[in-house]
Write a protein that binds this DNA or RNA. Structure first.
Length: 916
RNA sequence: GGGCGGUUAGCUCAGCUGGUUAGAGCGCCUGCCUUACAAGCAGGAGGUCGCAGGUUCGAGUCCUGCACUGCCCACCA
């Protein structure tokens, strides 16, 4: 790269080129390390996107944060593994392919299972994993050689192994229970996959005639159509109103079936009429009550949400149509006695939005309590920490109230349950298809047609991707993984399951102490956990803080944003806005600002190269371009105040950035670098060294170049995890395309050197900046022509400050466009149009007079503020409690400030007097 | 029905364990094509930190209540 390159940074081609280079060079591939490896390990498992997935802003935030952490650790010398892969996503993918088939006029059931599954694989090979290509565009530094798919043969084998083991341990059982059933998807779904919604509905009161009397008993229901399957009416045993009806029967209207009146706590006297219809086959509570009272379970709704043959005249009707008809008939026959507005909660299928039907069916379940206990303890003991911390309590609450998990799905795409049914009724659960029935020796075995919940297999990934059930070297080194960064949405779906499975199946596992001890997690004892730390990232919303959703049409496509502003700028935006615990309202304005930042860096680089090529071409790639092997600033020779200052600032910022990343304060890390690079390095340092570069003599220019290069190169490394592309581009240019290392990503991350912190330099620099800004301010107020240089007068009382300004006279004159500095012996405070701080007075000599009225206003306002602050300080200093209790640092600070304020007050007052 | 978060400049947001003068970007106003950058430079205006109490020497920061707002969890007909 040379200085004749475009003035404006064009990220497109550059980013694509480096993304390809990183993959081609296999820079982030981590072969299994041999025994004896002593580097601390950092492992991160990518939350596998669905094969059907496309990148959205939430992913982009997640990936940005992961990549920052990964690159940061890698540069700090950790043996860093980031494992990518995709999830087969049972329902989602099956739906996708079904839709595709529908457009061809085909149906899944007509094709048959085998052909359909083959079709899904075909789809997967064609369209699946688009998101992986998008990840490449983001610059994700994952190990592509280890990419997995949840239905890979080795992972599938591990899934069967887990299933069989859990079954053998009695933790998996099969049974007929009420489950959430999606009539559209035709499968059971877990509690988590049901989204509840409040809608306006009705509460109907229906009276059932009591047999052997002319009485009625009135029940309340929101779902009248289920009455067709009623097998009892329940009242509370203690409810006086119904005591006389205990043991009697009622005649179920429309169906004319006799059903008993039972007493059960299901019925609560306060609610409705105090009597409740019981439909064991279509309501979870009624199901339980049915078991308690041995009631028949009459199913009236089929798996497609239609009334079945048990529904008499309503058979064949859709459930909602049936509701209408049932109500009509009840009304006509005088059984419907009440109808009032009522807010009801309905469950909808997470995938397709269809209203879920509680339905009786035979499913496979995991007994959750024995698995939950260790998973709760691991978090309570701090073996796993969750950040932000409030999610820990949410996790624990959920885990304490968890129900058994329905793991079977009536789908075709997924891991088929490793159970075989024999015609004799025996069920054989086995790792591979058995040849014959273990009970009757028969060979007519058919495999269970159900597949497993997608989350069953993804819950195993932390160990199955590393070779489990084999005792592999990978497991020994990389398990437990170090960090998991994920969205709150899947805390229960995925994170909780991984913890349960990890603690269960990896119990007793020991990580290689050589790679563990050196890491920051070395003090943890329990290596069964799947990860050491979980960071829950924020939700990305649109600029109006609305949740992005396709139906609202407010989805911001990250690739569009990338197209317009570049990946680096987009990444920087997300990093800079990602304060832990708060959602992000994505704004393109910010991204544009960070695109400008990239441009600023680019132009600073152009400036640097222009000067190096002109005065010290030897600096690149020869001198100073030796392998950057340490964590500081290379080849820096502090000769001047600005040199000492920028070196100190760099180290302070480096310290802050590392500390911020340590605690996931991405926004702080990003802002620190931004402010340093733009506000200090470009605005001040580069401006200050220009004279040395231009006409300071060869030696002086060479050192200035070297220092410029040193800071710039180190700053690139500091920024690299956030903006990997532009930093890689410029870094390579520094070495003229011939760096010793193949990538800045492999160079050491800057670490602060306490010895290079220089408080004196920072203080002195602040005074000079203050003086320069004061003069610029005065010039603006006097409307001095920008190009005109004007003389100034300066008064200082302290000799050191006089010396400081004297020594940096040239800088002040240049940056404030001053013709000549004249030091005067007396305070300029009274002089109208002069500026003052506690340390100096300054006056611009110019024929134009300032606007006296405006000046008076300004001074009045200033005085007011000074008085206010001064009074405030005095009050505190006069308070014994304050003096006794406040830290000396604070007290001293206020004392010092009070002195300054007194000086300032006098200056402002005398000037106001002068103005009259 | 429970639980969690948010409310700071016109807009979008920082402000970590309470401590001197509450910050940034965008937008706005003024002046500059100053030989890295107009995607830039210099200067400026703009805030009773949602409301009401409380704790404290000291509160944007901690506590209580309220208001508005968002999210999650929940098998009450």
């Amino acid at each position: 790269m040379a200085h004749d390159l475009p003035k404006a940074y064009e990220p497109g081609a550059i980013e694509t080129r480096w993304a390809e280079y990183w993959i081609k060079e296999k820079l982030f591939s981590v072969p299994t390390p041999p025994p004896g490896e002593t580097r601390p390990v950092f492992t991160l498992l990518l939350p596998p996107p669905n094969v059907t997935g496309r990148l959205h802003m939430g992913h982009m935030l997640n990936h940005t944060q992961m990549d920052i952490m990964v690159r940061w650790h890698r540069m700090r010398g950790f043996l860093t593994l980031w494992l990518p892969g995709t999830d087969h996503a049972g329902i989602a993918t099956q739906m996708m392919v079904e839709r595709q088939l529908a457009s061809e006029g085909k149906k899944r059931r007509d094709m048959g299972r085998e052909a359909f599954v083959e079709r899904v694989w075909e789809w997967k090979r064609h369209y699946g994993g688009a998101i992986l290509d998008q990840m490449k565009r983001l610059g994700d530094s994952v190990d592509w050689d280890r990419e997995y798919f949840t239905m890979d043969e080795n992972l599938s084998r591990a899934v069967r192994e887990v299933f069989v083991r859990l079954y053998e341990e009695g933790l998996i059982y099969r049974g007929k229970y009420i489950v959430n059933w999606c009539p559209r998807c035709g499968t059971a779904i877990s509690d988590l996959e049901v989204k509840h919604e409040e809608i306006a509905g009705k509460l109907y009161e229906i009276r059932y005639p009591v047999i052997g009397s002319d009485e009625f008993i009135t029940v309340a229901t929101t779902r009248p159509e289920t009455m067709l399957g009623d097998t009892a009416v329940a009242v509370n045993a203690g409810d006086e109103r119904y005591k006389r009806l205990h043991g009697k029967k009622v005649l179920l209207p429309l169906m004319n079936r006799e059903i008993p009146i039972i007493t059960d706590d299901l019925a609560q006297p306060e609610f409705g009429t105090g009597a409740v219809k019981v439909t064991p086959a279509h309501d979870p509570n009624d199901f339980e009550a049915g078991l308690r009272h041995n009631l028949p379970q009459i199913e009236v709704i089929d798996e497609q949400g239609r009334m079945n043959e048990n529904a008499g005249p309503y058979a064949g009707l859709d459930r909602y149509e049936a509701r209408k008809r049932v109500l009509e008939d009840l009304r006509q026959q005088g059984f419907l006695v009440g109808e009032k507005d009522y807010t009801i909660s309905i469950g909808k299928c997470d995938r397709c939005g269809t209203v879920v039907e509680p339905r009786l069916s035979t499913q496979w379940f995991i007994k959750i309590a024995p698995l939950a206990q260790p998973a709760i303890e691991a978090v309570e003991r701090g073996e796993i920490t969750i950040v932000p911390e409030n999610y820990k309590q949410i996790y624990l609450n959920w885990m304490h109230n968890i129900y058994d998990w329905c793991i079977s799905r009536q789908l075709w795409w997924g891991h088929r349950i490793p159970a075989w049914h024999c015609s004799c009724g025996e069920i054989i659960v086995a790792r591979e298809a058995p040849a014959s029935c273990s009970k009757c020796r028969g060979a007519k075995l058919t495999q269970d047609t159900d597949v497993l919940d997608t989350w069953f297999s993804s819950g195993l990934l932390p160990f199955t991707t590393l070779g489990w059930p084999e005792k592999t070297r990978d497991l020994e080194v990389f398990y437990p993984t170090t960090l998991l960064i994920t969205a709150y949405e899947i805390l229960f779906f995925w994170v909780a399951r991984m913890i349960m499975f990890g603690c269960h199946f990896m119990a007793g596992h020991q990580q290689d102490p050589k790679v563990k001890q050196a890491s920051s997690w070395g003090d943890k004892k329990d290596d069964s956990v799947p990860f050491r730390q979980v960071y829950i990232h924020a939700l990305v919303r649109d600029a109006e803080r609305q949740k992005m959703s396709k139906t609202k049409g407010n989805v911001v496509d990250p690739l569009d944003v990338i197209e317009r502003f570049g990946t680096d700028a987009t990444r920087f935006t997300l990093a800079a806005m990602a304060a832990p615990g708060t959602d992000i309202a994505f704004s393109e304005g910010r991204t544009e600002g960070y695109r400008n930042f990239a441009n600023k860096i680019w132009n600073a680089a152009r400036f640097m190269f222009m000067n190096i090529d002109r005065v010290a071409p030897g600096l690149r790639p020869g001198t100073g371009s030796e392998n950057r092997s340490h964590t500081g600033v290379d080849g820096f020779e502090a000769r001047t105040l600005e040199d000492r200052w920028i070196l100190s600032r760099f180290n302070r910022v480096t310290k802050n950035v590392n500390e911020a990343l340590e605690t996931y304060r991405f926004h702080e890390a990003a802002n620190q670098i931004y402010d340093f690079f733009w506000g200090e390095f470009c605005d001040w340092y580069i401006e200050l060294i220009k004279p040395r570069l231009l006409d300071g003599g060869d030696e002086s220019a060479r050192i200035a170049c070297k220092n410029l290069l040193g800071i710039f190169e180190a700053a690139l490394r500091l920024l690299h995890p956030v903006m990997p592309f532009i930093t890689e581009e410029i870094w390579h240019a520094i070495y003229d395309g011939k760096p010793t290392l193949r990538s800045i990503a492999l160079a050491p991350y800057p670490q602060a050197d306490e010895k290079q912190l220089d408080l004196a330099a920072e203080t002195e620099m602040a005074i000079l900046q203050d003086l320069i800004v004061s003069v610029r301010n005065l010039r603006a107020e006097l409307k001095v022509d920008q190009k005109q240089r004007v003389p100034i007068q300066v008064f200082v009382s302290e000799p050191e400050i006089h010396k400081l300004i004297e020594q940096n006279r040239g800088s002040v004159e240049r940056l404030a466009n001053v013709e000549k500095i004249e030091f005067v012996a007396n305070s300029l405070a009274k002089l109208s149009g002069a500026r003052h701080t506690a340390r100096f007075d300054v006056h611009v000599i110019y024929e134009r007079k300032i606007d006296v009225a405006a000046e008076r206003e300004r001074l009045k306002k200033e005085l007011e503020q000074i008085e206010k602050e001064f009074a405030n300080g005095q009050r505190q200093l006069g308070n014994e409690q304050f003096l006794a209790k406040a830290p000396t640092k604070v007290v001293d600070g206020i004392r010092r400030r009070a002195q300054e304020l007194e000086i300032l007050r006098e200056k402002v007052k005398s000037k106001l007097d002068e103005l009259g």
